[in-house]
Nucleic acid binder design. Structure first.
Length: 279
DNA sequence: TGGTATGTTCCAAA
DNA sequence: TTTTGGAACATACC
């Protein structure tokens, strides 16, 4: 279930394999995941060369020689495999690109949430995305201005792809832990010092994870090592690396959320009696 | 068996 | 208008 560091790792790994290669054929056994539809995408992809492979947020961008674009979003369980010809089909195989030199790119996706989109207007998908957190536009000043005008809770805001593109549940929790900010703080309540800490934490956590090839928690995403360096996510009941208080699990915006209850102090509103909520 | 899952989107309600 | 909650998507794992 890839977030920015996992998608970045995938793009770096597959770029030298696919760029410059010409697609001989494209087939899909799960046509509902192929947009606008499988016959059209197949016809468009046949005999096209891939000129570039890039990332924007959690999207993987194939630039084709006819200036069309193929966007792949892995969502919860999508992954790629590369092989000439496998002795048997990999599990949950949904689509295959065959290249003229007999190599193949396999798209596997247990949950079928992933999307393969052929378009001449990639901005329809990409323009709504927010700032690239590792790009030059994402400065502490930008973050301060952006937070000031929003009343949303910090964690759901960090997960909003139209705000910052690429953070998911793991790295939102890790960044908030690193910045010592409670996920229920409202965006506009941060002090300038806290904004700087959050900005630094987001970039630090993402860069570090890319260095470790992302986080591997199950069979879906292999060969990452960042899981050995997570400080909050998935560490419920274990001691906080800073103060030894037990990491606890909350539910925020329907997502599991890991915090150190000592390092990440709740906002006053979260400690008020919430039991008065019914009429 | 039931609860959970690293994501996104749509709708209703506040 | 902005924000939040809940359901939906489809499947595997513990």
């Amino acid at each position: 279930m890839p977030e920015l560091p996992e998608v970045e790792t995938i793009v770096r790994r597959f770029r030298p394999l696919v760029v410059g290669r010409r697609i001989a054929d494209f087939t899909a056994t799960s046509p509902g995941q192929v947009l606008p539809n499988l016959p059209r995408v197949r016809a468009h992809l046949r005999s096209r060369r891939i000129d570039a492979l890039e990332r924007r947020g959690k999207y993987i961008i194939f630039s084709l020689e006819d200036h069309a674009t193929l966007l792949v979003h892995l969502r919860m369980s999508g992954r790629f495999e590369w092989a000439a010809e496998l002795p048997e089909e990999p599990p949950h195989l949904r689509a295959v690109w065959s290249f003229q030199d007999n190599n193949r790119l396999y798209f596997c996706d247990a949950r079928k949430f992933g999307r393969i989109i052929h378009t001449r207007e990639p901005d329809t998908c990409l323009a709504p995305l927010g700032v690239e957190p590792l790009g030059p536009e994402f400065s502490a000043r930008w973050l301060a201005d952006a937070l000031q005008s929003r009343k949303r809770l910090l964690k759901p805001l960090l997960l909003d792809q139209t705000f910052i593109a690429g953070l998911g549940n793991i790295y939102a929790d890790e960044a908030l832990f690193s910045a010592k900010l409670h996920p229920l703080r409202s965006a506009h309540s941060l002090t300038p010092r806290e904004v700087v800490a959050l900005h630094r934490a987001i970039r630090h956590v993402l860069r570090k994870s890319i260095r470790y090839d992302g986080t591997t928690l199950d069979w879906i995403y292999p060969r990452g090592r960042m899981q050995e360096h997570l400080k909050a996510y998935g560490r419920k009941g274990q001691p906080c690396p800073r103060c030894r208080t037990e990491i606890t699990l909350l539910r925020v915006a329907q997502r599991s959320t890991h915090i150190c209850p000592n390092c990440q102090q709740p906002p006053p509103s979260a400690t008020e009696n919430p039991a008065r909520s019914h009429p």
